[in-house]
Amino acid sequence: MANFFSTRATKGLLNVGEIYCPKNGEFPSFKEAAGTAYLNNFVKNVPEDDFNSLSLVLAIFSFLPNFLLVWIINLCTNAQNSPSDGLLYSNLRQLNLGLRGLCYSIYYSEFTNPNYKGKKALDVLDYKLNRVTE
């Protein structure tokens, strides 16, 4: 069965993404710029077990108040520096990279919300790639 984020999980991702990539000067807020319509394309090759775990975590995140979410994200971020190789810290590290990967994949990409007309994150970086095919 294809991996598909529920509305609830997508809401959780938007909340998390806003912590990683808030509105800041020229940078757009994750919530307004992220092309969540493309989200499912980016997870179609994620193993089903991993996807289901991620989807569940995101759905839970959608219910959490922002201060608690910030605390959890900080926990994940700090796990990167923890000497512990226990199950909790291993999972937090994987969650840290998984969430960041998903958020940055749509934030630093061409796949923005079609209703968003402002400057994209890639434009703020002034990133241009020239592909010469012929």
Partner: peptide, 29 residues
């Protein structure tokens, strides 16, 4: 083929790699 490879970094990671982008060591490091 050369004309069907993904055109963006986001698609490259998601489509061309096992695990949909990255796989982790057991300790997540």
């Amino acid at each position: 083929r050369k004309d069907t490879f993904p055109k963006t970094e986001a698609e490259t990671s998601a489509y061309l790699y096992w695990g949909g982008g990255i796989e982790f060591a057991k300790d997540g490091r």
